[in-house]
Every structure is written in structure tokens, then in C-alpha cells.
Write a protein that binds this DNA or RNA. Structure first.
Length: 441
RNA sequence: GGCGCGUUCGUCUAGUGGUUAGGACACAGCCCUCUCAAGGCUGGUACACGGGUUCGACUCCCGUACGCGCUGCCA
């Protein structure tokens, strides 16, 4: 039996979870789940002492939202804890001593540095293959600092120590660490230990080819949470960035991805984040939500956008939202799409009004009003019949009355099925809205 | 500058010596249709460049260009 697969995600608490970091975490998680191994979360907070709890909360929230549960780490504990580097200083001291005793460390202006053996190091990377680094030249490959004069630890040192101590078997991390890897291996060998396996995955870039930075909208997982994206959709999309099932499937169940996930299918080139595709994929997931789930998420979104859903009867809200299901890709489209249900004080889209609220249409809209006022049972089927009859009587195409009617009732020419929306609104409101529109032109 | 990684439609990708270079998003058109979506159909756009190797290169090798990363007492 091969040794247990143990992987880790080791973010530093910067106050948010980067989308690229989330994908790194996701790949680690998938790898662990596929192999029945352990996914460890370790917080690398050696450099920043302040507001850690707050900053770490963003990481926890993002990972939890994506469903990336960790087997060891903050909150859940584990036999290799603590899982905050700020609480592991004794350990680092011990390893430092070991290196010092073996003569690998020297002081340089108060800082401690590791003396490179200056040899070739072959990095056998699971994504990129064998890479030969020649570290013989000190000019081009200076010794790395492992501790600052103030006693704080440098990433390269503590990261390596923790991976060793936590018995990490595979290091899946961003490709930006590829060039650091030979130095890490030197350190590990100096400690008489065996390096883990490495798989350095390509970075995620912006549309303009630059590295996604915190400033870019959409670079933070938080952004997708707030905008009402579905975690399963974001997760699915992230899987597709740099990994491929190698067939033409795009929308994949997470269990299926776990089943077929393989490092061999991770690409070698960096990927550009495509908001369009995520938007589409989110729609695919949104369309197959249960009515109840759709309702819950929709209401939450509307509330946070200050749409007054709570002023209306639950039955009304449910009926209203039901007419929106399947029509939107992301929930943040909802306020604009269905806001007319929850206020009588909406604006008419100016361009549409200019086009449809015309002298020619006025008698037509009047006819619609009269016709609807006579409908006994105010439901979609009756409404359809009434409107069709009206159009026929006027001798005009059906579409000619649909647009003005919709505009009068909702303020827009785009929206849910007209009949159904009228039914939800109810006779009183519909007639009042038509009257209001009629008075405008 | 040095070192490293990378390069297939605008984007994500499939492809491992012989394919009309496939799919998806986006885009355009058509169909469906009460609008918009969804769905169906159709269309256009890609192997960075130059040398090899080979009967034959997107596929293998070399070089060039370009991009990215590392080159910190950031992670």
C-alpha cells in the first residue's frame, strides 16, 4: 500500500480568498478526495500579526462556500497541529537548531541564511516533468534568508518545515513556486528528509493576460458569494480552468469530478478567467434548482438589494419568483428582472416608452384594458385568450399589443411570460398600471 | 540581465506523426415563440514564427519571438 495521500492548502491571511487560491485549494481537495487522503488547511500567518481572526474568516468562508471541507486545520484540529504558523515557532526554532548544528546556517546583517550546497537539483514535477536547475552560481541563485533580524520567519523555511512535519505527500501549488522548489528541496535534504511530490499548477490570468490581482473585480471568491452565484457552478467552472475531463463534458457533478480527477489531466499553460463562461455555467445550475431552493436564494438576493419582498404575502412572492425561474443566469439579475412585482413606483424604460407609448397604440392599450377588465377568472389562460381576441378585433398582430401591455405593467419590454406576470400581479394592479401608463401619452 | 515555465479559434479546451483540426463560452443569422431566456439549426475565426527529422508534422528536435513566473529580510 502506498503512503497516505496528504495535501494542504496554505494561504496567508490577506483578508480575502483569491480566486486563484481557491482553485489551488480545489485541486488539492479533489486530489485528496480522489485518493481517499487528507486535505489539510494551514494558515501561513508568520508575517502579519494583526486582524488575523478577521482575515482568516474570509478564507474559511470562501472555502466553506465552495464546499472544500478540510480534514485537519483550524476549527477541526488534527494530530499535526497547531495549524497556524504563528503558533508553531518552537518547532521552527528546533529545526533551525538542527540546521545550525549541521553548519548550514550563517548570519548576514542580523538575518539568518541557509547556505546552498550549490549543485544541480532535479525537480520532478507531476505537471511539468523533470526540470534541471543549476544552482551552482551564487550570483544568479543567492542563498535564501530564513529568518529576519527581528526574529520573524521567512515563508520558504516555515513552509518547508510544516510540510515535513505535517507529513504532506504532495504539494499542489501555483506555478509561481516552480522556481522556488529547488531551494526548498535543498533545505529538505539538508534536514535529511525526503521531499514531497510536487505538482505546480499554471496560474489564472486576467483577460488582458496579466496576473489576476486583488484589485480586479471577480478576483475574490467573496465577489461571487455577494453576487449570488451558485457555489457548485463556481466550483465546476474553476475545475475547468487548467484541468480537463478530456472528453467534451463541461457541466460535471462534483462526485464525478472527484472520481476522474487526475493530475495527468492538468494543463501546462496558464488560463484566462472567462466571466462569460462562468455566467453561462451558473445559469445551467440555476435552471435545475428546485423551486424551493430557487425561491430561497431569490428572496435572499432581493432582500439584500432592498427589494421589499417582505411587504408582500409569501404566496405572492413565490408566484412572482416562479415566473423568473429559468430566465436568469445569476441571482443578481433578479432585482432588475422582477422588481416590478414589488413596487408600483417603477420607471418606464425610456427607449421602450418612446417606441410603444404612441398615439397609435393608445387605443389599443385601452382596448386591452377593457378586455382584461372583463376577464372573470384572472389567470394566464384567460388572459391569453382575452389578449388574442383583442388583437384579432383590432385587426393587428398579436405582438403589437403585447409590448405596450408589458411595458405598462412592468416598465420594461423584457421579462417573464406576460400572461403569467399579469396573473401574479392581479386584476386590480394590472388595470391600475395600465391606467397609469395611459395617462402618460 | 540571469534562470525557469509556457504558446491550438477572442476565451476555456480536445488532439500525441496521416483528422474536413473536435467541443464549449462569446458573437452572427435562422427556427421556435407573448418579450427575454431556454432549446434546435447554421456560420465565421485557431495550430506564434523559422529551421530541421520524416514519405508525411499541430503533434518530435533546435532556434527566434512573445507571454508569464522566480531572481526579497512578500507569500
Amino acid at each position: 500500500m502506498s503512503p497516505e495521500v496528504r495535501v494542504r492548502f496554505a494561504p496567508s491571511p490577506t483578508g480575502y480568498l483569491h480566486i486563484g487560491g481557491a482553485r489551488t485549494a480545489l485541486f488539492n481537495w479533489l486530489f485528496a478526495r480522489h485518493h481517499g487522503g487528507k486535505f489539510v488547511l494551514r494558515i501561513e500567518d508568520t508575517d502579519m500579526k494583526r486582524n488575523t481572526e478577521e482575515a482568516m474568516a474570509a478564507i474559511y468562508e470562501g472555502l466553506e462556500w465552495l464546499g472544500l471541507n478540510w480534514d485537519e486545520g483550524p476549527h477541526v484540529g488534527g494530530e499535526f497541529g497547531p495549524y497556524l504558523q504563528s503558533e508553531r515557532t518552537e518547532l521552527y526554532e528546533r529545526y533551525l537548531k538542527k540546521l545550525q548544528d549541521a553548519g548550514h546556517i550563517y548570519e548576514d546583517q542580523g538575518a539568518l541564511r541557509f547556505r546552498s550546497p550549490r549543485e544541480h537539483v532535479i525537480v520532478d514535477d507531476l505537471v511539468h516533468g523533470k526540470i534541471d536547475f543549476d544552482l551552482s552560481n551564487e550570483e544568479t541563485h543567492p542563498d535564501m534568508t530564513i529568518r529576519r533580524p527581528d526574529g520573524s520567519w521567512i515563508f520558504h523555511f516555515v513552509n518547508v518545515i510544516d510540510d515535513l512535519e505535517m507529513k504532506i505527500s504532495h504539494v499542489l501549488r501555483g506555478e509561481d513556486h516552480l522556481s522556488n522548489t529547488p531551494k526548498h528541496i535543498e533545505l529538505i535534504r539538508a534536514l535529511g528528509a525526503t521531499p514531497p511530490q510536487y505538482a505546480q499548477i499554471p496560474l489564472i490570468l486576467n483577460r488582458d493576460g496579466t496576473k489576476m490581482s486583488k484589485r480586479d473585480a471577480g478576483a475574490r471568491v467573496e465577489y461571487y458569494i455577494r453576487r449570488g452565484f451558485l457555489p457548485a457552478a463556481v466550483r465546476n467552472y474553476l475545475c475547468l480552468l487548467g484541468w480537463s475531463p478530456k472528453d467534451d463534458r463541461e457541466k460535471l457533478d462534483i462526485d464525478e469530478i472527484i472520481r476522474i480527477f487526475d493530475l495527468k489531466n492538468i494543463g501546462r499553460s496558464s488560463a484566462t478567467f472567462d466571466p462569460n463562461k462562468l455566467h453561462w455555467l451558473n445559469g445551467e445550475y440555476a435552471r435545475e434548482l428546485s423551486d424551493e431552493k430557487f425561491y430561497e436564494l431569490a428572496v435572499a438576493t432581493l432582500r439584500s438589494s432592498s427589494v421589499k419582498v417582505d411587504d408582500y404575502a409569501d404566496e405572492y412572492v413565490r408566484a412572482a419568483l416562479q415566473t423568473c425561474k429559468g430566465k436568469i443566469n445569476t441571482f443578481d439579475e433578479l432585482p432588475a428582472y422582477c422588481g416590478f412585482y414589488f413596487t408600483d413606483d417603477f420607471e418606464y424604460d425610456a427607449q421602450s416608452a418612446a417606441k410603444h407609448f404612441t398615439p397609435e397604440n393608445k387605443p389599443r392599450l385601452k382596448a386591452v384594458r377593457d378586455s382584461l377588465s372583463l376577464v372573470e377568472k384572472f389567470d394566464a389562460a384567460e388572459m391569453e385568450a382575452a389578449l388574442k381576441t383583442t388583437a384579432a378585433k383590432l385587426g393587428i398582430k398579436f405582438g403589437a399589443i403585447v409590448h405596450p401591455t408589458r411595458l405598462a405593467a412592468t416598465g420594461s419590454t423584457v421579462g417573464p411570460s406576460l400572461y403569467h406576470l399579469l396573473e401574479v400581479l392581479g386584476k386590480e394592479k394590472v388595470l391600475a398600471r395600465i391606467d397609469r401608463a395611459l395617462a402618460l401619452f
